[in-house]
Design a protein around this nucleic acid. Structure first.
Lengths: 208, 208
DNA sequence: CAACCAGTCACCAGTTCTGGGGACAAGGTC
DNA sequence: GACCTTGTCCCCAGAACTGGTGACTGGTTG
């Protein structure tokens, strides 16, 4: 079965070039193309391509938002972002929105076709540079500052409950201690984390 | 400058093969090799290789823990995991611990050397399969329920401020509206998100 | 032993939030 | 035109939180 590909790209020239490349390549079929995210959203659910090549910078709705919405109605469609920028913000947003791969427009024809085959085979094509950025986001959350580390075990349990939105009284019942004890812990937690409200503390906690 | 590589691998045969490959390759230098994580931890900080090839399954301390500790003392040393398993748990742990790349032992010699060069050039070498797993972890929280979507733009701005721990008054000043208006928005937000406190709302918001 | 930390509890004053009741204008939908 | 949503504002009462000052116990550490 050839791989059915759709293209969403506002530049007529680029879009046409891509479509031609895919149509001519063995094992590929270009089923549709769109110049605008809105039109793509309307058409793709019917087209049911296997993979969509999606530009990020589109007029009106951008590519990332388009992926998010497309994935809501057709989660099985794979999306590969295709863009000129290698900026961290967009990479994360696109991947979080449901994109499977992330390539730059300067990718060679062969590499592009290889990437589409990769997607069918369960891969996530991206340059190693982009992979590095993704990897870094794993690490950033990690070994750095962990202000919650200085908290005593009991204090951490309380913070845990705080993050779940429990009332002081509920925390007290939950941990089998008194309301005033909870109060004391929370004052100590705030001091250690250098915050003045519950929400700030929770934000620090969730951000780890 | 040749790339200085160290190897941590318990199998004598594999380790020797790798060392030979690297020593003979143009542009590479094998500066040290270790059969155990403990020994590697003691030696690598002095060896100061540019890249370490690290096996995951080591006797005693495993490769992931070894990376974590190595990164604490020598964060500039890049580590590429080299393993037979493509299992999700290890991939995340290794990357979170500070590994830069993740390859399988069946990787070809050429690809391995290319990967090491990639690392110097700021990339994160990994197979597209592994990249997919990494990408999926971005999405896992993802495309499902997004209750924050029903919020009006203004309400989302308020929620944003809420998440930063601002007081009602601060939100009001921040957005240039009145305290009572903030109050109204927050009541509407709580209703839409089905929560009763600020922290619950923020938790839903941050969990996206 | 003195000092400190973690864990427990108490009281009080003041702030801030939460939930209820409205209100009014602008805009879109049926 | 009736209805709903959004954005804006107001008042009130009660619940919940914050911050300060203590206090007692049992470890740990210098």
């Amino acid at each position: 079965m050839p791989i059915a590909v759709s293209i969403v790209e506002d530049s007529n020239q680029v879009r046409t070039t891509l479509a031609r490349l895919i149509s001519r390549a063995e094992g590929f079929r270009c089923v549709s193309q769109y110049a605008k995210a809105e039109a793509a959203l309307a058409g793709l659910p019917q087209d049911r391509p296997e993979v969509v090549l999606m530009d990020i910078n589109l007029p009106g709705m951008n590519g990332v938002e388009c992926v998010r919405r497309l994935k809501q109605v057709r989660p099985e469609i794979q999306v590969v972002m295709l863009t000129v920028y290698e900026d961290t913000e967009n990479i994360f947003n696109a991947l979080a929105a449901g994109a499977t791969g992330y390539l730059l427009k300067r990718t060679s024809k062969d590499a592009l076709l290889a990437a589409l085959r990769d997607v069918r085979q369960g891969g996530s094509p991206m340059t190693t540079h982009i992979a590095r950025k993704v990897v870094q986001s794993f690490q950033r959350a990690g070994p750095s500052t962990q202000p919650t580390e200085n908290l005593s075990p009991r204090e951490q349990e309380v913070l845990d409950c705080l993050a779940k939105g429990f009332l002081y009284k509920e925390i007290a019942d939950n941990l089998g201690i008194g309301y005033e004890t909870v109060h004391t812990y929370i004052r100590r937690i705030y001091e250690k984390l250098q915050v003045r409200t519950r929400t700030e503390a929770v934000a620090k906690f969730l951000a780890r």
